[in-house]
């Protein structure tokens, strides 16, 4: 249940930006969640909802965008989706390095 730690991270970032931009209310928080991150989205939403009570982000919507796991083969240069967590290049047998899919990131904020 590290979703609470992640929810706290999200709120810290959102409040920080809201203060910097002199906003009064945070309406929406856009998140990028990589396919290869151990985040249970239901638990995250639950933690976030209870965490933001009484803050500027109370009632804010969490907009989750999943980022697919994509790899790059150092050997043959192909860029391809990684399926079933198999990091061996199906074309040449080389190792696939992660290009995307490990994101745990606040992408944007909507404030007023």
């Amino acid at each position: 249940m590290h979703e609470m730690a992640i929810a706290e991270g999200i709120l810290d970032i959102a409040l920080d930006y809201a203060h910097k931009n002199e906003a009064e209310h945070i309406r929406k928080i856009g998140l990028l969640l990589g396919e290869m991150t151990g985040v249970e989205t239901e638990a995250l939403t639950f933690c976030f909802t209870s965490l933001v009570r009484g803050t500027m982000a109370e009632g804010a919507e969490l907009a989750l965008k999943r980022v697919p796991l994509i790899g790059h083969c150092a050997q043959c240069g192909r860029r391809q989706p990684i399926r079933h967590y198999n990091f061996i290049c199906p074309a040449c047998g080389g190792g696939l390095a992660i290009v995307s899919g490990r994101e745990l990131r606040v992408e944007y904020l909507e404030m007023e």
Partner: peptide, 8 residues
């Protein structure tokens, strides 16, 4: 709306 792009 502002772009953030910050790691949680």
């Amino acid at each position: 709306e502002i772009q953030v792009m910050q790691d949680i």
